[in-house]
Simulated scan of single mutants.
Amino acid sequence: MAKVAPQCQDGTEKMRKTTTILAAIAALSVGAATASAQSNQGPMKGMDHSAMPGMKGMKGDHNMMAMNDYMAAIKKMDQAMMSAKGSTPDVTFARKMMAHHQGAIDMAQIQLRHGSDADAKMIAQQTIDENTKGKAELQAWLKAHGG
């Protein structure tokens, strides 16, 4: 897992924990997608892949639905970030970060739909609130700077 900076811009431990959780979700999503792809092809078709990385603790179709939702959200975010461009590095940054914030919102909404842990759901809601605010700040900056 990628190392997270000791403190985020606003100096809060909460943001560091949120970033760590989102990184873990992304890592699990990649592992689940790889295992899912492998389980549907060739000689591995129909085999139990529960011992594979990223598959530990999976609980049937519901968890696979969540993993599929995470993968779709990550793909959408990646595409939006890659296509976001601007007339200046500042505008490009704002547009790419807006896509990044939307990706965090989308993944947190998936957690709220599929998750069961109350603390994780609370963090997901905080993620939605914080990233909605961050996205709005960037939109306001773009509007004020002709972007």
Rank of each mutant, 00 (worst) to 15 (best):
A124T: 09
L112I: 09
K3R: 08
G115A: 13
A26S: 12
D119P: 02
T127S: 13
G46E: 09
K143I: 00
V4H: 12
D69E: 14
A94K: 03
G31N: 01
A144V: 00
G54V: 11
T12P: 00
A5T: 14
N40P: 01
A120G: 11
T132I: 04
Q111W: 02
M77P: 03
M15Y: 01
K17W: 09
A35H: 04
Q125K: 10
G46K: 07
M81R: 09
A27V: 08
G42S: 12
N68F: 00
K76I: 03
H49W: 11
I123L: 13
L138C: 00
Q139G: 05
Q102K: 10
Q109W: 05
E137N: 10
A26L: 13
L22T: 04
M82C: 08
M67G: 06
A94E: 05
G103N: 05
R16S: 10
T88V: 07
D10S: 06
L22W: 08
T19Q: 10
H114E: 08
D78A: 12
M122N: 12
L112Q: 11
Q9T: 14
I105S: 01
M65Y: 06
I110R: 02
A72S: 12
Q139C: 04
F93C: 12
A99W: 04
A144P: 04
M55Y: 03
N131A: 02
K14I: 10
D106R: 04
T18E: 15
G103M: 03
T20D: 04
Q9L: 07
S29R: 01
A104V: 12
H49S: 06
S116Q: 13
A37K: 05
Q9Y: 15
W141T: 01
I105E: 00
N131G: 03
S83D: 11
G103E: 01
F93D: 13
C8Q: 12
A66V: 00
P6N: 11
P89C: 04
A35P: 02
G147D: 06
G115E: 10
K96M: 12
S50V: 04
V4E: 14
M55D: 05
H100Q: 14
N68I: 02
M122Y: 01
A24T: 06
K96Q: 14
T18H: 15
N68D: 14
L138N: 00
G147H: 00
Q79A: 11
